[in-house]
Every structure is written in structure tokens, then in C-alpha cells.
Design a protein around this nucleic acid. Sequence first.
DNA 1: AATGAATGAGAGTTCATTCAT
DNA 2: AATGAATGAACTCTCATTCAT
Lengths: 208, 208, 208, 208
Amino acid sequence: MGLQPEKQQTILKAAFAEFAEHGYKNASTNRIVEAAGIGKGMLFYYFNSKQELFEFLADYGMTFISEHYLPQLSGDGGAGFIETLQKASRIKMEAYLKYPHLFNFFSALMSESNIKHLPDQLRRRVEDLQSLGTRRLVSNVDMSMFREDIPPEAAMQYAQWLIDGYLKKITDTFSGTNYAQDAVLAMWDDYDVFLEHVKAMLYVKKKG
Amino acid sequence: MGLQPEKQQTILKAAFAEFAEHGYKNASTNRIVEAAGIGKGMLFYYFNSKQELFEFLADYGMTFISEHYLPQLSGDGGAGFIETLQKASRIKMEAYLKYPHLFNFFSALMSESNIKHLPDQLRRRVEDLQSLGTRRLVSNVDMSMFREDIPPEAAMQYAQWLIDGYLKKITDTFSGTNYAQDAVLAMWDDYDVFLEHVKAMLYVKKKG
Amino acid sequence: MGLQPEKQQTILKAAFAEFAEHGYKNASTNRIVEAAGIGKGMLFYYFNSKQELFEFLADYGMTFISEHYLPQLSGDGGAGFIETLQKASRIKMEAYLKYPHLFNFFSALMSESNIKHLPDQLRRRVEDLQSLGTRRLVSNVDMSMFREDIPPEAAMQYAQWLIDGYLKKITDTFSGTNYAQDAVLAMWDDYDVFLEHVKAMLYVKKKG
Amino acid sequence: MGLQPEKQQTILKAAFAEFAEHGYKNASTNRIVEAAGIGKGMLFYYFNSKQELFEFLADYGMTFISEHYLPQLSGDGGAGFIETLQKASRIKMEAYLKYPHLFNFFSALMSESNIKHLPDQLRRRVEDLQSLGTRRLVSNVDMSMFREDIPPEAAMQYAQWLIDGYLKKITDTFSGTNYAQDAVLAMWDDYDVFLEHVKAMLYVKKKG
DNA sequence: AATGAATGAGAGTTCATTCAT
DNA sequence: AATGAATGAACTCTCATTCAT
């Protein structure tokens, strides 16, 4: 891949968008080269096949996320689970608003049957990445904060589901739209209220 | 659609399965007519295009669900929200095990980008149907059971997200497999425990 | 293959010619459909792939030859080997002049590396067909006619090589040309002289 | 072609092998430059097109053969035709075993439809070369050795066909295989027996 | 009502050839 | 001299859709 970076970015952007919008099988290499403004042959000169292109994108995207997004999640030993989740999801949202291509590609990648087009090794990396945040979060958790009538593992799962539900609502709201900055700010406020609710539901009741 | 009902059912079944398995674009009308045992022309005689066939299926499926599945959800005035949800989700699971074609079609329809192939009117019906259960459930709910520090609308949303998370886990587990009956029973037990947790999280604390 | 015979013949003729001229790999299905005057899809509607088309042609051609050409070779018990070969090659030449497509296809099929594109079963049929004439001819041969200083097996091989050489000269002369009828007649006369030479070379000297 | 000889040889070897293996149309210039270890542009800098490269190889190969192989065939005035042919074919076989690239290239060139890719002038040179040995051999032949009932021109043709048949059997046997040295020696013995047969068939009967 | 032959656009991919560097 | 990025035509094959029967 010794081509000049700007052209490279153009191609990758076009390819990410195409796969995100249409899924693996329906993505058209013709549309990709048209959107990227290159000749038909070039795509197969760089990437030898549609399959390899897809794998490159998955690999590229995961490496990018691992380097730019995951490091921000580290640290904060001793903080409560939900607080950590709160920070993590805020970072995720910010990353999403910054690199929508990439995140759309990955959500398409995971939710669809597209994942089956990846070779075993890459598929495992995707699954690792999916659980990485969670596992990383779990490592330093102060379990004593959870209420006693729900097992901590279950509690963490419930927190994840709730936050997933919330984030889905958010991404549905903001997908494809030229969102106003005000709306984003309002969202964060709403999100904080939501997380207070989650804490109330899952943490042991603090004494007056 | 003045054709004899048995043939009709054969075609619809084949079409539901094809769309559920391959998504809108990759669904092959050739495979549908082969599976249904009809000539190629007939499909386009009844339904004028792939698009219309898809819309018919969506409409037919929604009508079927509205008539066979939703009525079971009604009634039980005075019961708690989560108890109602519990009953609803059990009915949903049973319906899923009974009409897998149809439910697979709808989950494929909703989760994928397939929904964009529907005209606005039908898409709205799908979205209505998605929330219909919820809205219907809401009508008779005894709001007083919810804890006071979380608004009831939010609480209901949270319950829905939690149950969605649980059901997704379930359908992921059972999709495509020839599940053992034992596993189904164990699942229901586990589900009851889960719902107790949900009640603990969202209901006002019962006095000793 | 329920299409009307004339169209069928047009397609087969075009396909035979294309494969004969370009070999398997360089044969273009595009040129075939153009030459046959049919739409791009039809070729793959009848025959599912280039490979299947090729196999169909090989099978069709072999069946045709077996039915129209081989039966003429039978009989004549007791005749000399070269006389039998003489009759056989005359029949072969007449068949060649009558169905040049088919024979060009088979000579291309056998001499080139095209034969590797056939499945084992068909390849065996080709090889059987190749030796069939010979084997059939050998069955009733009066070996006593051959000269004593050359083993009969070798003698038969030499006769075959000589006739092959002669036939190759002929087919080179007549290939692709609109040959005059006169030339064909002259050829047969020349051929008879040639066969007398072969007899003189391989048979035991007749007594004065 | 002012490039250094070693590089030149590398390119020619790669090109000879590629054309010999795949024929004109299926030969890939990509594979040639890869095998030769040069950049894509160089091939088209030296030879302006695939066509010209092919013609250069044909020309180069024929010149090489004319200089290294044909001279060995000369002389021996007074020897019998078949004895001369015997010597010639032995030289040919030895040359074949020594320069398999080149000979495979030429046999591919002649037997296939590849020859049509040559311009008229080169094609004539190929045909000349094919018959050159023969014509050269004819010049000094002692015609009186042939039997009287077959014209000498015909007899020479028959001898050629017989030897062609034998050589074809040989090259079929040895093509592509790592032949054992023993097998080669056995072949030469067998070949001598064969040539005795040819003499018996075509020469005038020697008196006891 | 019903068939299936027929179409042509578009899919992924390969390739000889050009040209800025 | 030398590179390899870039092109676009041609390749085999698939598909929804049409229409004569």
C-alpha cells in the first residue's frame, strides 16, 4: 500500500461507507471506485479481491480503534463500575461522532451476518474487541457497591444492556443527520440523568 | 391474490424464508419460485415486482401478528407492568417457536437495512408494531408500583431494554439450532429469576 | 434443453466453432452469444457455466460420432488390416467434410491441453473413443498378411502413423477453405495410391 | 535490446517458459515480469507489446536453432536418407533434452493456434525451419537406395511421418517428467530397432 | 392463469498497456 | 533505464423482469 495517503483515505472512506450501508454481499466495488474516483483496476491492484478489501478494512478499523479509542478507557482504579461505564460510553459516543464511517462499518459488521466473511483470526479479533471494553472495565471493579440481592455478574450485564439500549436510542437519533451541537449537549445532560437511574437501580442504597 | 389458499401459503412460506435468510437484495426470486414449485411468471403475475412482494409480506406478516399474537397480550387490568411484560415476552417466545419463518423475517427486517426498502407508510406500520406491544401494555398499567425516584416512563423504557437484552441473548442461543426441549425449560426458569431482578430494580421496595 | 431445434443448432454450432478455434480458456462466451444471436443470459440459462457447456459439447459430439460415424466402421471380417483402415479413414474424411465444426472441435480437444477441463468420466470416454476405431479394427485382423520381419503390433502402429500423417496433410489442405469438389476427388485418387504404398511397405510380398 | 546479457537471459527464459506453458493468449506479462524480477514497465520498454515480445522470442529461438542445431545436421554426403534422418532425430532429441524451454516453446508454437499470432514473414520462417532439416537432408541423398515401386519423394515423406510418429510418442512420454537416465538409454535402443524397420520398409531389399 | 425462454444491466476480476516519476 | 500506479475493456456469471405462448 505505497500510495499517497490522501488517495488512500479517499478509497478507504468510500469502501467503509459502502460496506456500512450495504453489507458485505451487496456492497458494490463499482460504486466504491466511482465514489473514490479511481479506475476499476486499482481496487484490485491494492486489494486483490473484495474479500481482502473487507478484511483490510476490518483490520484497519480495529487497529485504529485500539489505538485511538481504547487507551482512553484505561485507569481509574477503584471507581465504581457504572462510573467507569459512564466514562467509557461517553468516549465511545465522542468517537462515534468523530468517525461515523468507521463506527457504522463496525456496527454493520457485528450486527449482520457480515462477520462470517471474516477469516477465523480476524473474527476472533472482532469478538475480542467487542468484549475488550467490558473485560477491561471489569478488571478493577469495586464489587461491594452492588446491591446484595442481585449477583454482581448479572448486575454488570444489566448495566450493559441498559446502556446499550440508551446508546442505540442515541445513534438512531443521530445517524445520518447533520445534528445540531445543541442537541448533542442536551443529550449528554439527559445521559447523566439516565446513569443516575442506573446507579439507583443497581447500587446498594446509600445511607442518608 | 385470487389463488387457492394452499398454493398461496406455499409461496408465502418460501418467500418469507428466502427474505429472512438472505435479506432483501440477496433474496433470489429464482429460489423462491423453485422452492414454491411455481413458474417464474406467476410470481410477477401476482406480485408485480420483488419490491411489491416484499411489501406484501411485511403487510401480511404484520396483519397476522396483529390478529394472532397481539390479542393475547390484552387485558389483565391491574397487574403490574413487569408482570404484564413477563406474560407478553413469554407469548412472544412461544410465537417465535411456532412461526419461526415469520419472526425471522421480521427480525431480519428490523435489524438490517432492509427496512429502507419499505415505503414510508409501511415503515411506519412496522415501527408502530414494534412499539404497539409497549403502548398497549402501558394503557392499563398500575403506575404506583414503580419506585419514586425514577419517572414511570423511564422505568418502563428501562424494563423494555432489559427484556430486549435478555431476549436477544435467548434468540442468539436458539437461532438455527435444533434446541433440546430441556434447554427451553431451563431457559424459562432462568427467565423468571431475571424478571425478579427487574422487579427488584424498578418496583418500590415491598415492606417486609 | 427444451428449446427449438434450429436455435439449439445455432448455439451449438457457434460454441463448437469458438472452442475449436480458441481452445477452452480463450473461448469467449460473449463471442458465442453474439455469433448465435442470443442474449447474454441464455447461454447460462441452458448450460450453467462455460465448463458445463464444454462438457455438453464433448458429450454431444461423442454421442453423435458414436451413432453416425462408428457404425460404418464395423464388419468386414477377414479383410486385411490396411484395407480396413482404408475404409475407416475414408469414412472419417467424409465425416470430416460433412461436419467440420465437430471434427475441428475434437481435434482441438485432443491435441491441446483442453482435455484436462473434462471430468474424469468424460475424459475416459474421449480416450475410449480415440482408441475405439483402432481397437475395433484390430479385432478381426488377419495377421498373416503382414511381413515377417516386423512384429504385427509394430506394423499396425506404423500403418496408423502413416495414415495419420496423410490425413493431417489433407485436413491442413482443406481446413477453413471452401474447397472445390474437383480437389476432393483428386485427393481420393491420390489417397488410393498412398494406400497401395502402405500395403507394399507392410504386407508380405505377393507372389508374382 | 542494449541491456546486460544476464538480465536479458533471465527475461527470455521467463518469457519462453510462460508462452510454452500457457500459449500466446493466456501467457501473462505480469507473471513474466515477476519471474524475471523486473518492473512492469521494462518489459514494454524493451519489447513494445506482448505481440512484439512473442515475435522476438520466435525470431531469437529460430536463430539459435539455426546456429546451434542445424549445423550438426550437415554433411555426410553419400549416406543413406534414413541414416541421415536417424542422426538428425538423435541430434534433435539431444537438443530437446538440453534446451527444453526452447523446444517446448516451439512445439507449443507449432501445434497450437499460436502461430497465427506471428506476422506472415515470421510464420514463413517457422515453416521453413520445420522443413529445413528435411530439405537440407534431401540435397545429398542417395536416391538409389529406395525401393523402386515407391517414388523417392513419397518415400522420404513416409519416412518423415513415421519418425514424427515415433518422436511424438517419445516426447509425450518424457514431457514434464523427471525422466530417469535408464529410460532414455532404453529409448535409444528401441529407436534403433524402429529405424531398422523403416529401412526394411523403404529401402530396396538387400541381397543376401 | 400459467409457463419458462429471453433479455441486458451489473456483479467481481484479470490483463496488456501507458506514463509520471 | 527503470519503476509501479493507473486505466478500461473484456472476462464469466447472476438477476429481476418481460412476454409470446
